[in-house]
Design a protein around this nucleic acid. Structure first.
Lengths: 199, 199
DNA sequence: GTCTATAGTAAGATAGAC
DNA sequence: GTCTATCTTACTATAGAC
């Protein structure tokens, strides 16, 4: 080919995402992003005139889209609850590469100063996820309080298992987490009251 | 006072720790650390000739010491299991300021390149915590597998609830987590097998 | 659309006065 | 022990050729 090939946008986003998930926003220098994508810094600025912040924003937006399609949509389908939860679990296993990749929602929540354009995106994504799960649990017969409590706990468990997986350098916590999610979410609420704090 | 006062070491560590917990290692610039401590950069280098890395290492070491004294020691005491768990929970609530402060184990696990002097400390701290909890649960009558599984899940839950608290800008997930820890840890294992993955 | 080359700025770190 | 002043490096970002 005569002129330089335009690197495909989706592949580019993917590679940028990998860097942010690995080293976080502040740790992701343009040198690193350039190396990971195979594009020179100037080329990155051509695609993202807003610089690093725009890259992170687009990556984050892409992740939200992925969340909507592969997690929220299955949770809201008309399949039986067990099937919907299993679909979510497959999505999670895929998204986090079985526990080998961290979560943007965690890795991008530090950029301080204005505390960033990311804060809103992150908050919304977490809320949407929790609410979709809670809606499913309500539909499955749990009272609203229990549904909300279990949903929030499940999301926390996924995030925490990723923190452990990263910190202990093993995917086991994440695999354990996924392996038990369905059972824990749908377990009959006999075993003591969940007792969520109201405020 | 004639000569400049020596700022107390413990207070200094505390302030440095706050910065690292807030913005992570890469985000913690010397300008930020200087501002937070009230010391000029050169003064920080006088105390920490190894620069930022030494600061983070000492902060991390201090946190490990705190973990040993306020979490691991109570877990290994000769009080009844419920009391030991409650002591841990009080320690956690204090350490994380009720969910307002993030965990160093999460915030310092990104520094890449060599992946750092932090990796070992973090891994050890997480393992020690999980093992202390598992030992308590074994002692409380649970089989080794269940004890290990619940211990790891509890630590993941704490970490994850901190991620959520940070991301959603509310301490509720963390408070919920602590409020239910004792019950979840000591619940009779009637409700379906925990089914941990072996490897 | 990609590159090389280069501004301009903020980072980590030192030297030496007090 | 703390400071001001400075060095060096790495970073973000831009200019302009191809």
């Amino acid at each position: 080919m005569a002129r330089p090939a335009k690197i495909e946008s989706s592949a580019l986003h993917r590679k940028l995402s990998d860097v942010f998930r690995d080293v976080g926003y502040e740790g992701a220098s343009l040198a690193l992003l350039s190396e990971a994508t195979g594009l020179q810094r100037a080329s990155l600025y051509h695609r993202f005139p807003g610089g690093k912040e725009q890259m992170a924003l687009e990556v984050m937006t892409g992740a939200e889209q992925w969340l909507g399609e592969h997690i929220l949509a299955p949770l809201a389908s008309d399949a039986p609850p067990e099937a919907r939860i299993r679909a979510m679990i497959r999505g999670l296993d895929d998204f986090y590469s079985g526990g080998r990749q961290a979560c943007l929602l965690n890795m991008l929540s530090s950029p301080r100063a204005d505390r960033g354009p990311f804060a809103r995106l992150i908050r919304n994504a977490l809320k949407a996820w929790i609410e979709a799960l809670a809606a499913l649990l309500s539909e499955a017969g749990f009272d609203a309080e229990t549904a909300r409590f279990r949903a929030e706990r499940a999301v926390a468990l996924v995030q925490g298992s990723l923190v452990l997986a990263r910190g202990m350098d093993t995917t086991r916590p994440f695999r354990n987490c996924l392996a038990n999610l369905e059972r824990e979410l749908l377990a009959p609420r006999s075993d003591g009251a969940p007792a969520p704090t109201s405020a």
